[in-house]
Nucleic acid binder design. Sequence first.
DNA 1: AAGTGGTCTAGACCACCTC
DNA 2: AGGTGGTCTAGACCACTTG
Lengths: 233, 233
Amino acid sequence: MTSDQKHSWSDIRELIHSRILDATYRPGDKLPRDEDLALELGCARTTVHRAMRSLAESGIVERRRKGGTIVCTDPVTRTRLDIPVTRLEVEMSGAVYAYHMVDCRHLLAPGSVTAVMGLVEREVMLNIKALHLSDGKPFIYEDRWISLETVPEILKVDLKRQNANEWLVRNRPYNRCSVQLYAEAALGEIAEQMLVAPGSALLHIERTTWLNDAPITHVRATTAPGYRLSTTS
Amino acid sequence: MTSDQKHSWSDIRELIHSRILDATYRPGDKLPRDEDLALELGCARTTVHRAMRSLAESGIVERRRKGGTIVCTDPVTRTRLDIPVTRLEVEMSGAVYAYHMVDCRHLLAPGSVTAVMGLVEREVMLNIKALHLSDGKPFIYEDRWISLETVPEILKVDLKRQNANEWLVRNRPYNRCSVQLYAEAALGEIAEQMLVAPGSALLHIERTTWLNDAPITHVRATTAPGYRLSTTS
DNA sequence: AAGTGGTCTAGACCACCTC
DNA sequence: AGGTGGTCTAGACCACTTG
C-alpha cells in the first residue's frame, strides 16, 4: 500500500512541499503529526522533523508544540541577502579596487546614530568618511561611526591605508546585525564625492553591528547609480 | 579537567562562536573534528553537528567532507529579508488599505522580462499595472507580468476586485524566487501615479517567482518616497 | 584510499502550549 | 493535563573530497 519509501529528509521535504503546492494541504490546514507522517512514509520521526524544520525555516509552515504544524497563510517572500565586503565585490567584477579616506575625526554622534545603536546617551565616536573606487570611479561612499567604548583599539590603526570595515571584520567580529535599505537623492556632499548630478536616485544600505549588545559600528553606504542588490533562494 | 558539560546544541554553538570571537580560532583556521569536539565537550557528535550546521548557515564557518571545518575569511553580512504581502503591511501599520487596478492587457512581454524568467522566446503575457494605497495615498505601484503558459486560470479571476498578488499567493505557490533591489528616479508614468515630483528617488523591488522552472510572475514594485526595507538577525 | 562531515535510526526524555 | 514538537544519545552507514 505505502508507495516505495524515500528515506532522505530532502525527499520528504519535497514530498510534503508538493502536497502543499497541489493543495492537498491548504493554507491554514493542520498537517499530520510528525509521528504519523513517519509511519506513513516509512522513516524515522527524526527524519520527518528534519524536513519540517527546513520547511519552517523557509516560512512555508509554522510549528508549535502541542499546536501541531500548520501551512502558513499569508506567506511572506523570504530570501537571504548577502552583502559582500566591498573590496571583494569590486575585484570579483574584474575591476581594480581602491580605498580613499575622505575624513576622520572624533565627533559627538548624532542622536539618530546612537538611537539605532541602542544607546541611551549620545557619546563621542570615531566618524570616518571614505570612498570605495572601482577602476578609479566612485563605487560606494561610506559614512561610518565607530564606538570607542567598544573598539578603543581602532585608534591605533592607520585608517588612511587600512579600510576600516576590513579591519573591523577581521578583528572585531559581530554577533548581531541590523540592515536597512532605502532610496535617497544624492545631497550636496554625496553628489560631489560620487561625481553624480545632485538629486540622482541612489540606493543606501545602512548597517549596524553589535557584539553582545555592545555597539561596534554603524555605517551608511551610498551606492553608485545603477547599483543592485540581488538575493537568491 | 573538562569543564562542566553543556549538552544543548545552542550552548555549544555559542561556545564555538565565542572561541571564534575571541580569536581562539582565527579566520582560515581549521577547527577540531566534530568527534573530537564532542569528546571534549562531553556530548554526542550529532549535537556538535547541529551546532556546526547552524554556524555554517550563518556563514561563520565553512564545512567540507574530508576537508574539515574552517573559520570563514572575508565574511559577508548575511541577513534574512522578509517582504510582506502589501495589504498586510499597510494594515499592520494601522492604515486603511486599498487596491486600484490601473491597467490590464495582453501584451508581448519585453525581452528584459522574459530573460529574467529564463525563457528563450518572448511570449504574450498578462500585464497588470496597479496601485496599492495606504490611507488613500499611493504606497506601492506595481507593474506585473503573469505567464499565461503557467497560470492560464488567471483569466477567470476578476482582477479589478481581487489583488493579483494575493490570488497568486493563495492559488499558485512558488518554488523558487529571485529578488532585486535598486533605486531609480520616478519616470513620467510612475511619478504621475505615485503623485511625486518627477525625478524623486524611489526604492524598487523586483521579484520573479517560479514553480519548478515554470515562470509564474515577474513584478516590479515601486515604493513610495521614504520606504525602507529592514532585515533582522 | 582514507578521513571527514552528512544522514538515518530507534528510543528516550524534555519543554512548551493549547485544549 | 496531556499532546505535540524539540532535542539528545549511540551507533551505523553513506558520500564526498582531498591528500
